[in-house]
């Protein structure tokens, strides 16, 4: 707990408070509607408690443990992705190399080797994977296979590892929040945006925004979520980040906008394979990628905006 600043601890308490409030409201609604079935909603809330408990435990223990935790999340996400997409029998050994990229990428995070962290997957894994496939020699569906494996590695390992790199950024440049503050800030705002878009869509939604991919998403939901997220970003940024007022507005728009893009990108993949959820790993939520979809976009983009201004 000693590596966390006071502001981070306060945000943790706020999150626990919000979740307690939702749990309380859930029980009140359930008591007033005894005939309705609330199993799914209850599983959803219970899983939120579990996920938040694990996340808080990981970031409050030590930077090293938090990095291992994010590496494990990448492992679960990559495994889920590779279990979802069709892979060829001959790709088994290529997939093994893809998995090996996880410990290497997160090791690069832990030793703060910034340039290598940025190029290891986009350059070296990019060149290595097709080479390994050539050695196996199955050319039928070669490019298709290579493309799907590589894309999965980028989304589940490269993109998500930016969360871990936030932890090792120079804490002196962010005395109020530190690395853990940046991580919690980004995850909190990204998840808040998901929920805000969902709620404003339910309340005001009329015009479908991207009906071919995600028929439940509306323009009103997107804009409502964006207004709420930008407002919250402006309020929270001074306590957890070095961002000034203008930069906070920009980051708010980025989280809301690219969170949406990440969400619908994973939706498009699910539609491609005709599944509703990427797996049923998290009861009430679906798969790991269902939960992390927005973060796969907001994590790298927030990271680079932040490092452009400050690091």
């Amino acid at each position: 707990m000693n590596n966390l600043t006071l502001n981070v601890k306060i945000l943790m308490l706020v999150i626990i408070g919000l979740l307690s409030l939702s749990t309380l409201i859930f029980f009140l609604i359930k008591r007033n509607n005894p005939s309705q079935n609330f199993t799914e909603l209850w599983l959803r809330i219970r899983s939120w408690w579990v996920m938040i408990a694990i996340l808080f435990l990981a970031i409050s223990s030590s930077v090293k443990i938090a990095i291992i935790f994010f590496a494990f999340i990448s492992f679960l996400a990559l495994k889920e992705y590779l279990s979802l997409i069709p892979t060829r029998r001959s790709d088994r050994r290529v997939l093994f190399w893809a998995y090996l990229a996880i410990p290497i990428q997160y090791y690069l995070v832990s030793i703060h080797w910034y340039i290598m962290f940025l190029v290891f997957i986009p350059v070296y894994m990019f060149l290595l994977l097709p080479f390994r496939m050539v050695l196996i020699g199955d050319t039928r569906g070669f490019l298709h296979s290579l493309g799907t494996i590589y894309w999965g590695l980028m989304i589940t390992v490269f993109a998500l590892s930016h969360l871990a790199y936030l932890l090792v950024l120079d804490p002196l440049k962010n005395p109020h929040g530190g690395g853990a503050g940046l991580v919690l800030y980004l995850i909190f705002l990204t998840q808040f945006n998901d929920i805000a878009q969902y709620i404003s869509g339910k309340l005001l939604g009329k015009h479908k925004i991207i009906p071919l991919v995600s028929p439940n998403k509306t323009v009103e939901g997107f804009i409502g979520g964006m207004i709420a997220t930008v407002t919250l970003t402006i309020l929270v940024s001074p306590y957890l980040t070095p961002l000034n007022f203008g930069q906070s507005i920009l980051v708010g728009f980025i989280i809301a906008g690219f969170g949406f893009v990440g969400d619908v990108t994973i939706s498009a993949i699910k539609r491609d394979f005709g599944v509703k959820d990427t797996s049923n790993f998290i009861p009430g939520h679906g798969g790991i990628l269902d939960r992390l979809d927005s973060l796969t976009y907001t994590a790298p983009i927030f990271f680079h905006v932040l490092s452009y201004f400050y690091y």
């Binding site: 495994k79 590779l82 279990s83 088994r92 093994f96």
Partner: peptide, 18 residues
Amino acid sequence: HGFGKALPKGEALLVPFF
């Protein structure tokens, strides 16, 4: 389902799949 992908007959290398 899936165990044959993770460790098929004749292979010693385990590759994780759900």
